[in-house]
C-alpha cells in the first residue's frame, strides 16, 4: 500500500490480521484510534462490493485496538459486537475506521466506532470487550 503516513503501523500483524490486512493503525491525539486499509479483489462479494464479513472484521480490529490502548496492552477479548450496515464499500477508495472507548470498568470496556470511505459511513459498530483475568 502506498502513501501510508509514517506514524501508522500494521496492527498485530500475524494470523488473520496479516492474511486479510495488513490493517494500518495509529492513535490520534484525542484518544481515538484510526485504521487504514486498501481493498483488494479478495475482500469483495459476488456483487463486487466489500464483503460484509470484511467490514465487520476491520471494525473488530479497530475497536479492539482502541480497547487495548485503554487498558495499557492487557489481554482482552470481544464479548459482544453489534454492527449496522449503512452503505456498500467499493474498491479504489481507501477504507478507514475509527474507534473510541466510551467507558472502562474494572472488567469490561465499552467501545464504539465506524468504518467509512471518504465522507460516507459504511458500517457503525458498538462492542463490549472483556479484560481477561479481571473480575
Amino acid at each position: 500500500m502506498t502513501d501510508i503516513p509514517t506514524n501508522y503501523a500494521p496492527v498485530w500483524n500475524e494470523g488473520f490480521n496479516a492474511y486479510v490486512g495488513p490493517f494500518y493503525g495509529a492513535p490520534r491525539e484525542d484518544g481515538t484510534v484510526h485504521f487504514l486499509m486498501d481493498l483488494r479483489d479478495e475482500h469483495m462479494n459476488g456483487g463486487g462490493m466489500a464483503h460484509g464479513g470484511l467490514l465487520m472484521a476491520f471494525a473488530d480490529a479497530c475497536l479492539g485496538t482502541a480497547v487495548n490502548l485503554s487498558i495499557d496492552g492487557a489481554a482482552s477479548a470481544t464479548m459482544t459486537l453489534n454492527t449496522d450496515f449503512i452503505a456498500a464499500g467499493v474498491k479504489g477508495i481507501r477504507l478507514e475506521a475509527e474507534a473510541e472507548v466510551v467507558r472502562r470498568t474494572r472488567s469490561v470496556v465499552f467501545v464504539s466506532g465506524r468504518v467509512y470511505q471518504g465522507d460516507k459511513t459504511l458500517l457503525t459498530a458498538t462492542g463490549i470487550w472483556k479484560i481477561l483475568g479481571a473480575v
Binding site: 488473520f16 490480521n17 486479510v20 464479513g53 465487520m56 472484521a57 476491520f58 480490529a61 459486537l81
Partner: peptide
C-alpha cells in the same frame, strides 16, 4: 479472530 467469526456468521 472475532472478525473471522463475524465473517463466517
Amino acid at each position: 479472530h472475532g472478525g473471522m467469526m463475524a465473517s463466517f456468521a
